Amino acid sequence: MRYIVWALRLIVFLAVLLFALKNTDPVGVTFYGDWAVQGVPLIVVMLTTFVLGTVFGLLLTVPGSLRRRREVARLRKELERIQAAVNPDSGAQTPPELLMPMSPL
């Protein structure tokens, strides 16, 4: 499975590299108002927008991820509390050989 993932990564890398090599024509980029930048390679513009889109997409997932982590921590504490209530003597550690049944030889 690991080799398949690396093969797919190599294929994607080669596709992006070939795409970048074909899109080197200079373009003009106009921002808000009259501010413009002339002669920027097209691939730089495309990669910049891709990276910015990825960063904004990841930033949108952060609040949900933090919320899930807090919920998991809360549920673990609740599980520990319930286990302590059900098994009050579980705090005392017993040797492992006492927990396993002895099989006859």
Rank of each mutant, 00 (worst) to 15 (best):
N87L: 14
V29S: 01
G33Q: 00
K22Q: 05
G57K: 07
L75W: 09
L58V: 03
T30H: 01
M46C: 08
G64N: 05
P41Q: 04
M100A: 05
A20D: 14
V55W: 11
P63A: 08
I43K: 01
I43A: 02
S103A: 12
G28A: 08
P101Q: 10
E78D: 02
A92N: 14
R69N: 15
P101A: 10
G64M: 09
E78N: 06
L21V: 00
L14M: 12
P101Y: 07
L52T: 06
R69Y: 15
P104A: 13
F19E: 01
R74C: 06
V16A: 12
Y3H: 11
V40Q: 03
M102F: 14
E80I: 00
M46P: 01
V12A: 11
T49L: 14
G39N: 06
G33V: 00
I4Y: 15
P101S: 09
A84P: 04
N87P: 04
D25I: 04
P95W: 12
V5N: 02
A7C: 12
M46L: 13
R81W: 07
V55Q: 08
V62R: 08
Y32F: 06
A36D: 04
L10E: 07
A85Y: 15
P88K: 08
L105Q: 11
K22P: 00
L8R: 04
V29Q: 00
V12L: 09
V27S: 06
T54E: 11
A15G: 08
P95N: 07
F13C: 09
A20Q: 09
V40G: 01
F31R: 01
L21T: 00
P104G: 11
V5G: 00
V16G: 05
A15V: 06
G53I: 03
R69H: 15
N23R: 11
L14P: 03
R69S: 15
R9S: 13
W35H: 13
V44P: 00
V29H: 00
F19R: 01
P104M: 11
V5D: 03
Q83G: 01
L18W: 05
E78R: 09
Q83L: 12
L52N: 04
M1G: 10
R81V: 11
Q38P: 05
F13L: 11
R68G: 07
A84Y: 05
R69P: 11
A84M: 12
R70G: 08
F31S: 05
G33L: 01
T61M: 15
F56M: 02
L21N: 02
A84F: 10
R74H: 12
P26C: 02
F56E: 02
F19C: 02
D25W: 09
V51P: 03
A7G: 12
K77Q: 15
I82F: 07
L58T: 05
P88Y: 02
S90G: 14
E78C: 01
M102D: 13
P63S: 06
W35R: 13
M1P: 13
L58I: 03
Y3F: 15
L10Q: 10
R9V: 12
N23E: 10
V51Y: 10
